[in-house]
Design a protein around this nucleic acid. Sequence first.
DNA 1: ATAGGGTTAG
Length: 581
Amino acid sequence: MKYTIIQLRCYSTASPLTSHFNQRILHLKNGSGPTKVNDALQLFDEMLKRQPPPNIIQFTQLISLIVKEKQYSTALILLNQMKLMGIPANIYTMNIYINCHCRLNQVAYGFALLANIFKQGHPPNLATYSTLIHGLVLVDRVFEAVELFKKLLRDKLCDPDQVMYGTVINGLCKVGQTSKALELLTFMESGSCKSCVEQYSVVIDSLCKDKMVDHALELFAKMTEKGVLADVITYNSLIHGLCNFGRETEAAKMLRDMEEEGVSPGVDTFNILVNSFCKKGSVKDAELAVQAMVRRGLNPDVITYSALIDGYCLRGEIDEAEKVLDGMVEKELVPNIITYNSLINGYCKKKRIGKAMRLFQEIQDKGLIPDVVTYSSMLQGLYDSGNPAAARELFDKMQAKGLAPDICTYRILFHGMCNNSQYTDALALFQSLGGKELVKDIVLYTILIDGCTKCGKPNLALDLYDELLLKGLEPTVRTYNAMIRVYCQEGSLGKGTELLRKMEENGCLPDSFTYNVIVRELLKKNEHREAEIFLEEMINRGFMPDHATFENLLVRIPNVGKDSHLRTIIQKLTNGGRKDT
DNA sequence: ATAGGGTTAG
């Protein structure tokens, strides 16, 4: 009898136990940090041990917390434990279950669960369908996602809400169908479901990524006019878009605007600016952005410090980068692989390969796992320091560890091999890669064509050139430059000058390098008239003869007539040079 | 205040 009374007390929502759990869940929700998931797990265990078990809502809240921390497998384990303890599933727990499977790349299983829900007589709801649509989007099966959405509309299985529209709009954006996404946004506005900041943000972000920042700004204005308030994510997307296209000043203004509108920038917002300034080499501005962030009571995180380290490394100021690293460690922030990659890359670029190798070992001792970027940097360092054997060994090692080389790795590898006189090996390796989609890269072809000229094999270069055109790759200035050198080497300078004209027709402007090669070769062949034409053209376009071309010019002065145009050009160049100094 | 959506480094 006593036992029954205790049981009754536990069932009551006002019971001290229930409110105790509620308080702890609330505390966890507001809290943060690495202990969050562990604390949640602990609480879950305590709740599960209670007989009778607490309210299912509390369990759901707790598991949601874990889902928000992206611990999907853990969440699934907890749901299964609840099932084992005889706590019946409801549509909420089922939806979490489906979501977790979708997040773990098991969208098919998600659909199998949908069938189960039907069988059990619980009808799926909007959340169930949105989750599944999102699951398809996550694995790039956007066409199917859209089909499912259409079917739901057609068969009137549900009335889509903002989340569902947002999910489909996001899917369309993800596969580059921004205009379709915009259409759907307009369509939803024509209906009963009002659009909100989420749908707009998705499209704004997508427009920014499509390099249509001004269109994004227009949509942003349109959304504001409609009374939809932008939030921190909208602003982050816009600031990111502006920064990506060198419009940092406008980005900084956008930051001021958002604060005026009462939207507080987050650490992420400042990180976007910090990163952008670092990438374009102005670490000083980045440091100012960090100060601005600290003034607002925000704490720089690993991303902030990593960006600064990368910025200093790119400028070759390794000492400064090391100082930043020390600073972040003092703040008890843990550098990750991305942080160290910047440093390793910095050491390699400075030819401090010994230092790079020590750090490479050190981070592994710490338990960090080098990724493709780490290996690629190390490869470059080894090749640049004239150690192709060690480089090749490392390349094999990385693959043995299950890391697939990416296009950057291949570029570094082939460039390194060519620079270390391993042309034959390079070409053989390239052939062996054969049809790999990955090697359909114009930069890679250019590297190899360059390699061919260095080993004096113009014929192989010509083959490669035909091959890349056949694959539909678009030559860059560098490709053309390499090919012009090939023609020169082959003794068909005429083809070289022809290509210079053709590249421009193809919408690729010759650069200083192109002209220098041509002019130099023409001078060598004593084709002064032709040399004049190109020399004049290059000067008009703002390019100067380089050292080697200039020497060729000076050597020829005695051979050209007093009234020669070439002589006038040379005089102009030398006079101009004197005036400047 | 039980489920589902948008931004995020090298």
